[in-house]
Write a protein that binds this DNA or RNA. Sequence first.
DNA 1: GTGAAAGCGCTAACAT
DNA 2: ATGTTAGCGCTTTCAC
Lengths: 347, 347
Amino acid sequence: MGRRASWRVTIVDVAHAAGVSVSTVSRVLREHVDVQAETRARVQAAINELDYRPSPIARALVSGETRLLALLVSDITNPFYPQLAKSIEHEAVGTGHTVVICNTGDQVAETSRHLTRLLGQGLDGVIHAAVGLDEAAVLSLLGDYRRVVFTNRQPMSTSVSYVVSDNFGGAAELTRHLLSSGHRRIGFICGPSYARNATERLRGFTHAMGEVADAEGAVAQGEFSKNSGERAVTKWLDESRGLTAIIAINDAVALGAMEVLIQRGLRMPTDMALAGFDGTEVAASPVMSLTSVDQHIEEIGRQAVRVLLKQLGSEKYVPTQEVLPTRLLLRDSTEGPGRLGRGPGRA
Amino acid sequence: MGRRASWRVTIVDVAHAAGVSVSTVSRVLREHVDVQAETRARVQAAINELDYRPSPIARALVSGETRLLALLVSDITNPFYPQLAKSIEHEAVGTGHTVVICNTGDQVAETSRHLTRLLGQGLDGVIHAAVGLDEAAVLSLLGDYRRVVFTNRQPMSTSVSYVVSDNFGGAAELTRHLLSSGHRRIGFICGPSYARNATERLRGFTHAMGEVADAEGAVAQGEFSKNSGERAVTKWLDESRGLTAIIAINDAVALGAMEVLIQRGLRMPTDMALAGFDGTEVAASPVMSLTSVDQHIEEIGRQAVRVLLKQLGSEKYVPTQEVLPTRLLLRDSTEGPGRLGRGPGRA
DNA sequence: GTGAAAGCGCTAACAT
DNA sequence: ATGTTAGCGCTTTCAC
């Protein structure tokens, strides 16, 4: 049973009111040229009069276009994603598109479930901000490569579109900065190996470390969650590795790392320098004041939408692949005189 | 032009393969009883064989049901909302529903735009987590009260469903705790007057303050953003109001407040106690270690979905109105020996 | 118990 | 330049 307005104005009503046929109304709607100014005006009047709004459902049934877009993220509570989502939604809404945010939890099964369901609902396209093990599944479910653009994490496939940051360059720049500040033993809390942004950042780190003879890096495996940062730092501290600086794979992980440092009574940056990646708002806050690598989140989101819509609209498909530059954001967690740290609680 | 799979298996194909009519297939699909076990089996076999999946679009056209739900939030980058969104999505996905998150920015125009567009796309129902000035618009656009449930902020209308926290009680409990800790001059950074959760919390504060003779409250107007917290605290500090404790309308505002306190070199809780509201994850982090009032975000989201789905499914409508209890979360920002504060930077 | 047929609201040939 | 008509894939009376 439908729960929609009991009566809705249809194209037939408009045609009737304007004294024309439905196809003429449809033409006016679709802004077809083959319609006389006078007729068009009459139809428009009727449309306004009746407050007629075409049914996207009926339209979708015949055209196959729903203007429904999906944004796949691994975990919306990771502060990076809300910012990305906001910019994407902002960009998409202008063209009458709706975007659904789906949490994959980096699980292939979750991705498949979401996509299968949405495809059924008539999904037009996908922006995947967290490709990982699910890349093959996504590509095969979607069938048509035009319908997807990857962002944040670069896909393995070379024939699909993506908009990502220069993760290698950003990580290298950050590492070089720490090295030039005198750090020699630097820890890197990595992300999972299936996430290309993580591996690229690791490459950048390793590369930069290799440029300095006596530099010695430590790498911890992890994922993108706060827990991951806690775990790695706890381990390093317990092992007394003699690290003087730590780079976290992203700001969320850095938050976890910072928590442990604080609880252990260590001061930043004197006892330990700490940096993240992403350039989220929370990192910018004086409460964290975390050095990070700006990904220009808003710009990435905007570009991803543009690329996707362009692809959806064109017949011939040429993948667009963009790598945007990053920017180093230096803050108290690595810079400055090393003010007081915080003790076990609020210190 | 459609960009969907070039060929899709239709109900006609299944009917053909099973040697029955389309209506029979439809009956099997809808789990109608009037179908013989043997026929049903044959149809099922054909469905599996062809991997047939009914088109929700066609279904929507005739039934008016899309399984599309909207979640209205004021700003997804406020950490409260991603947590809420996650629980809502989690709950909704189980019943085959898709939820779209929309940022209203607390602007009536934005709400209307979103709703109008989504209604066109065939929206089934709405969970509004940020009612404000847009309440009338929402109700009139939706027409049917069964199609909406309010959460987080209580609506003005008494004949619609909502699931909210005991904002009054939570704020009162928090205030009483601060009073019992010896605080007498307490500042309250309020939210906008159109947001019922804000006004309820203010009521709770005022009420509790009134119970202690020499207690003196200060109230600052604001919104729900970090900026709001910065502004209020800056002002109070500049005016030397002699406050010893501050309650922020939510954790995001508290974050802004904390930033200023840190930058001014004040220690928590000795120089100034600080508390928030919501019980977000970020507040729990040792980096903030912010006393807050737990709203049981996940539970609220879950309930909101249940209520909405129940309403959508039933013919007769009786609004469900739930007020869930809150829980005080005491952390370093109000408790403890008052360890070192942090200086102008990382202190 | 099952089938035939009439739409749901719209678009796109194909006529005129 | 405009009208007629045949679907899009499904549900649902109404017959049999």
